[in-house]
Design a protein around this nucleic acid. Structure first.
Length: 857
RNA sequence: CCCCCCAUAGCCCAACUGGCAGAGGCAGCCGACUUAAAAUCGGCACAGUCAGGGUUCGAAUCCCUGUGGGGGGACCA
């Protein structure tokens, strides 16, 4: 294995040596990197009046900023390739493009690496950032390097703290005791969004357990409706998949809240249901065993019932999320020795506790309608509770479905209400509306909506994050850190035990944590938790407009002139997490008056993953393709072209399916055209008008089509079109118009300009060979000449009964009548028609004539 | 169980959104160059669009059903 690798490298080296006069990516990279370092072609002024006047069109193009866990990998290569194609494209269309870069540099990997190796998380983090910066420099995305930010810099996270305090002021940040997701490996709490569907942590992979803890939350549920409804406006601009995921995640459910009286209890119990129409079929009530209500009811129950409940609750809490979620579990539960009163018919119904009811959804209690809800039916059959049909549901043939009590299958479908008093005879939808009216009239219920979305748990019991700027008094009082005392800087990690142990390491930094009020002499203690790093990334895009501003989080004027992001690019793994949080914070900042817009990302491109042999690359699987070695072996251009050409950007790329050599070959062919023109071609500034018409048409067709293709993210097609253009230009040089023809120069220039989206080095070198100054990245695209696009002659197809029977060469401007006449005159067409009778002729000039026939009468 | 997306040459992928199934690449084959190979250059071949039904003069494209794959949600009331 080792030997083969060396041999290959030797081959490559020899090849480079031999091609010294030809295309040599290494020499080209070495030539242009220092020039670009000097030129800084992508720095933009966002603060000046001109930049904010809107006189020149702007585009804010952003790639999701990287986490500095080691060097860049192929995933980064792909993501930043696509974002850069778009940034470069808009520059070529005459836009002022802001394309910044930064690092999402707080987070657990740094801390875990620090624990493992006994180094400061800072050192590890900033060393990795330096390495990634160096790799980026060679990979050469068109970043504005003047506005780099790192979220772990105090100058950044001080504004994170500012944001937290703004949220706190508005009541959007609060502390509560609740059952939370606890990661037993990383020893910290997690937000709901960080727990995977299988109940494991998205970070550590550990099975998440539930703990009751007091934690900080952001009140994202206040924004649930807006976060859901505003997705509609992103339709077509965001991938359908992400919109679908966000909608599912927010999970709005409309129905009604019904008040049930419980015998022997003053307060009524509210219950959420999507089917208020089936209230007459509610034959029992179920409450979540871990809810306060269950505990309270058990308290007032018989000794026996109380004991049974205690055992049941203990058993429930021992289960992991995975056990709890496993499909078709046998229903379990205990009778709570209480009865509720059905508000519509006064019926006395038993109250049970069962773990199929969740404490934190709705009100933690349900009305059970076993006839029309499978879960309730399973429970009713297990514990021999009554089942009453209140909706007459029929099958497709109109026959009544079997009685659920007999069949064991609940009937949840459409039907007409029965046994339901005033609702009898109404179809389901109308019955729901009427039921809500009745409840409201009687004051026993109202229309209501619930959400799957939970408030965002933002505190973490770890070191490497933004300290929460809150002080605690021993009397339980809390107060925010004064704005002028920000940032609350992290204490040095030296001397702190960073090992996960369930409590924040900051709590042990006694000197740091203790604050004495100079006026009162009172002692306060700093909140020991740090913020979820998704807080950091929820607003970083605003900071880029003024990343060096020490006086404010962001400059509202600049942000409103340049925001929102016109084009965001990144991985689908953030479909919910980052994108939802960022949308939320943007809406909050909008409501606080800082932002004119309330959606952060106008258009979103999700790139797929880079796989190897059908599997995600990983060291443990041994299928890792190293970005650094690929970059060294093939150069930045060939890598970028390969990634862009592999397929639609949102599809996964299997590295086994693509050919970097193929891309290198294409680049060499493209480059040689400029080389040929430099040697013997038309001079710079030559008039193209006299050039070869056929080649010119191809060039202008490319210029006409490329913008639409780029804007539709069809980068693979643009590269294919460039390959085609290189092929026809080669042909023109070798066996056509010849290298001196002006059309060849025109084509070479167009290739260089469009190629610069994908292969900035090769394109820059071509541009220089064509006699121009750097940088090609700043050149506005030549416009397609419409007059060159029209063909004089076209091939028109004639179909008879759907089959192609002839192809006619006709003037492009042919009239419908002439086209039809020509079609009818064709011998092949006449043969196909034979003695059949023509019933219809459809003419679409200049493409097709379609003749429909029937047998002669 | 519910929702969303996808299926085109051996492989990766195009097809102006209803109008000749093929742009591009990989792999393959033939030829040129070479002592030979690699590289390079020139050329060739390859599928009727997952299956079935429907709408239409005309369907890869629209509709229905199914199969296969990917993703999301899910004891959510």
């Amino acid at each position: 294995m080792r030997a083969i690798r060396i041999e290959i490298e030797v081959c490559v080296t020899e090849q480079q040596g031999r091609d010294a006069e030809g295309y040599d990516f290494q020499a080209i990279q070495d030539r242009w990197l220092p020039v670009w370092d000097e030129l800084k072609p992508f720095e933009v002024d966002t603060a000046g009046a001109a930049a904010q006047s809107g006189e020149r069109p702007k585009k804010y193009v952003l790639d999701m900023f990287p986490y500095p866990s080691g060097d860049l990998h192929m995933g980064h290569a792909e993501a930043f390739c696509f974002g850069d194609v778009l940034a470069r494209y808009w520059r070529g269309q005459g836009y002022d493009v802001l394309h910044p870069i930064g690092w999402d540099s707080f987070g657990l990997p740094a801390e875990n690496a620090a624990i493992k190796r006994g180094v400061d998380p800072r050192e590890w983090t900033y060393a990795n950032i330096a390495q990634q910066k160096a790799s980026f420099r060679i990979y050469a995305p068109s970043f504005d390097w003047s506005r780099v930010l790192h979220t772990s810099d105090p100058e950044y996270y001080r504004w994170n703290q500012w944001l937290f305090l703004k949220m706190y002021e508005k009541g959007l940040a609060y502390r509560k005791a609740s059952w939370v997701n606890w990661d037993p490996v990383d020893q910290t709490v997690l937000a709901n969004e960080q727990v995977l569907a299988d109940g494991t942590s998205e970070r550590s992979g550990a099975v998440v357990v539930k703990k009751k803890l007091t934690q900080w939350y952001f009140r994202i549920t206040d924004y649930a409706d807006r976060l859901l409804d505003d997705l509609d406006a992103l339709e077509g601009q965001w991938p359908a998949k992400v919109l679908n995921m966000q909608r599912n995640w927010i999970g709005r459910s409309r129905g009604a809240e019904v008040e049930f009286e419980i015998e022997g209890r003053e307060q009524k119990v509210p219950v959420f249901t999507t089917r208020p129409d089936t209230l007459h079929g509610a034959t029992f009530m179920v409450v979540a065993p871990d809810s306060d209500l269950a505990a309270e009811l058990a308290e007032g129950a018989s000794e026996e019932a109380r004991a049974a409940f205690r055992d049941y609750l203990a058993a429930t809490q021992k289960q992991t999320e995975i056990e709890r979620q496993s499909a078709d579990r046998e229903k379990t539960g205990v009778f709570l020795d209480h009865f509720a009163v059905n508000p519509v018919n006064g019926e006395r119904i038993p109250v049970w506790a069962s773990d199929y009811v969740l404490a934190d959804y709705g009100h933690g209690a349900i009305m059970a309608v076993p006839a029309h809800d499978q879960r309730d039916l399973d429970f009713a059959l297990k514990f021999e509770l009554p089942v009453r049909v209140v909706v007459d549901v029929r099958d497709a043939d109109g026959a009544p479905l079997p009685d659920p009590a007999e069949s064991g299958v609940a009937t949840a479908g459409e039907g007409v209400l029965v046994n339901s008093g005033e609702l009898d005879g109404l179809p389901k939808t109308e019955a729901i509306a009427r039921a809500v009216e009745v409840l409201e009239e009687r004051g026993t219920g109202r229309a209501a909506t619930t959400y799957r979305l939970r408030d965002w748990l933002i505190s973490r019991q770890r070191y490497w994050g933004t300290p929460i700027p809150i002080l605690h008094h021993e009397n339980g009082e809390m107060r925010p850190v004064d704005a002028d005392a920000l940032p609350v800087e992290l204490p040095a990690s030296e001397g702190l035990d960073l090992k996960p142990k369930g409590a924040s390491p900051l709590g042990a930094a006694t000197e740091w944590a203790t604050v004495v009020d100079p006026e009162t002499g009172d002692t306060w203690t700093r909140d020991p938790d740090t913020m979820d790093t998704f807080v950091d990334s929820s607003w970083y895009y605003l900071r880029f407009l003024s990343s060096n501003d020490a006086t404010q989080a962001f400059d509202p004027a600049a942000v409103n002139a340049w925001g929102p992001i016109d084009q965001y690019a990144g991985g689908v793994e953030h479909a919910i997490l980052h994108l939802l949080y960022s949308r939320f914070i943007t809406k909050v900042l909008h409501d606080l008056g800082y932002l004119e817009f309330d959606e952060p990302f106008t258009a979103l491109l999700n790139q797929g993953m880079v796989l190897q042999d059908g599997a995600k690359m990983s060291k443990s699987k041994g299928n890792l393709v190293e970005f650094a070695s690929e970059l060294k072996a093939h150069g930045a251009d060939a890598l970028r072209v390969t990634l862009a050409f592999a397929g639609p950007p949102e599809d996964d790329i299997d590295w086994a399916d693509v050919s970097v050599q193929g891309s290198a070959k294409f680049l060499a062919r493209a480059w040689r055209i400029a080389d040929d023109v430099q040697g013997a071609g038309a001079p710079r500034g030559a008039s193209f008008a006299e050039g070869d018409a056929g080649l010119r048409r191809a060039t202008h067709r490319l210029l006409a089509d490329a913008p639409g293709l780029v804007e539709a993210y069809k980068f693979n097609v643009v590269v294919a079109r460039l390959m085609e253009q290189v092929n026809v230009t080669r042909k023109a040089i070798d066996s056509g118009a010849g290298v001196a023809d002006a059309a060849v120069r025109e084509s070479a220039e167009a290739i260089a300009v469009i190629l610069s989206l994908f292969a900035p080095y090769a394109a820059e070198d071509m541009w220089a060979k064509l006699g121009y100054e750097p940088s090609v990245a700043l050149v506005e695209w030549p416009k397609a000449d419409e007059s060159l696009l029209v063909e004089d002659e076209v091939t028109m197809v004639v179909q008879v009964d759907g089959k192609v029977r002839d192809r006619l060469t006709l003037p492009a401007s042919v009239s419908e009548a002439d086209a039809e006449a020509a079609a009818r005159a064709s011998a092949a067409v006449q043969r196909a028609i034979g003695d059949r009778q023509i019933v219809n002729v459809i003419v679409r000039v200049p493409k097709i004539v379609s003749i429909a026939t029937k047998p002669a009468a």
